[in-house]
């Protein structure tokens, strides 16, 4: 490595250490926000509903139970939530009222790398959050879940791309959305994303509503859910791997680019 590169790497490492320290200090809130949504989703959909006889079957002819369908979707949602809670919300504060980002912007490192660090760290938190969903979906449901990894390389690639996409989404939202509109962002972006993200149903099951099936393709969460479905519950219908891998890669690139550009605009006048 040349000398400037080594210095950039050290500064980048320093930023990661700082974020790790803050995460460790706020571990209880981190766990709470990570676990709450999947816990309640699994509890209501895969424990309460089967017990009270509410039918929810997205698996169609495959005969898979609903808990199995939920697993990949809930992991994907947990990752996206992490991107927002770990990157977008703090960043919006640090760029706005408190201007806390200043010391990191003035670190001896190119501006875009400060933004990329946010993506990477948000992504790591996303992976942790995604993994935290597993024990829940095994322990809570009334019916057994049928999850098995057919291709580890595929799973690893999907999780890496999904977590980076979540971090990049967090960066883009945190830099583009004004702090006063953060509440609105949940209503306009986060809620539609999760409900229309093929979380509670496989994409193929949308066949009867063709316009919706096409429309949801703008939602990156669809590819995360479908990618995880392909990797974890290969018995369920899912998109072809080439499609979700390409779409996830494009999502990572586009969201990262938008986020890095907006970060620069917010920090350099």
């Amino acid at each position: 490595m040349t000398e400037p590169r080594r210095q950039y790497a050290r500064a980048f490492g320093g930023l990661m250490l700082r974020d790790t320290r803050v995460l460790v200090r706020n571990f209880a809130p981190f766990v709470t926000r990570t676990v709450m949504n999947p816990l309640l989703s699994v509890f209501v959909f895969a424990y309460v509903f089967p017990k009270i006889g509410q039918g929810m079957r997205g698996g169609g002819a495959s005969g898979a139970n609903f808990a199995t369908i939920l697993v990949p979707g809930l992991i994907a949602v947990a990752m996206v939530f992490q991107g927002i809670a770990a990157v977008a919300l703090p960043l919006s504060m640090e760029l706005g009222a408190t201007r806390e980002i200043e010391d990191r912007v003035l670190a001896p490192i190119p501006n875009w790398l400060v933004a990329v660090e946010k993506i990477v760290f948000g992504g790591i938190q996303g992976v942790v959050a995604g993994l935290a969903v597993f024990p829940l979906v095994y322990l809570v449901p009334a019916t057994p879940v049928d999850v098995h990894v057919e291709s580890w390389p595929l799973l690893i690639v999907v999780i890496a791309l999904a977590s980076l996409a979540s971090g990049a989404l967090g960066l883009a939202l945190g830099t583009i959305v004004r702090p006063q509109h953060i509440g609105l962002m949940f209503a306009i972006v986060v809620v539609p994303m999760t409900f229309l993200g093929c979380v509670y149903y496989p994409w193929a099951a949308l066949g009867p509503i063709r316009w919706l099936q096409i429309g949801v393709l703008v939602n990156p969460l669809v590819y995360m859910s479908e990618g995880l479905r392909a990797a974890l519950t290969p018995g369920l219908p899912h998109m072809p791997a080439a499609l979700f891998l390409l779409a996830l890669t494009l999502a990572v690139l586009a969201l990262s680019f938008a986020g890095v550009v907006a970060f620069r605009r917010r920090t350099i006048d």
Binding site: A11, G14, R18, P90, E100, E102, D103, P108
Partner: peptide, 30 residues
Amino acid sequence: RSIGVVSQYNTLDRACTVRENLYYHCRYFG
């Protein structure tokens, strides 16, 4: 690397203690 900056506003890292503000600043600088 050649400049130190105290800006017009309090830009201390609110999520870190006083010592950590100094410590991580040093880490950023290698």
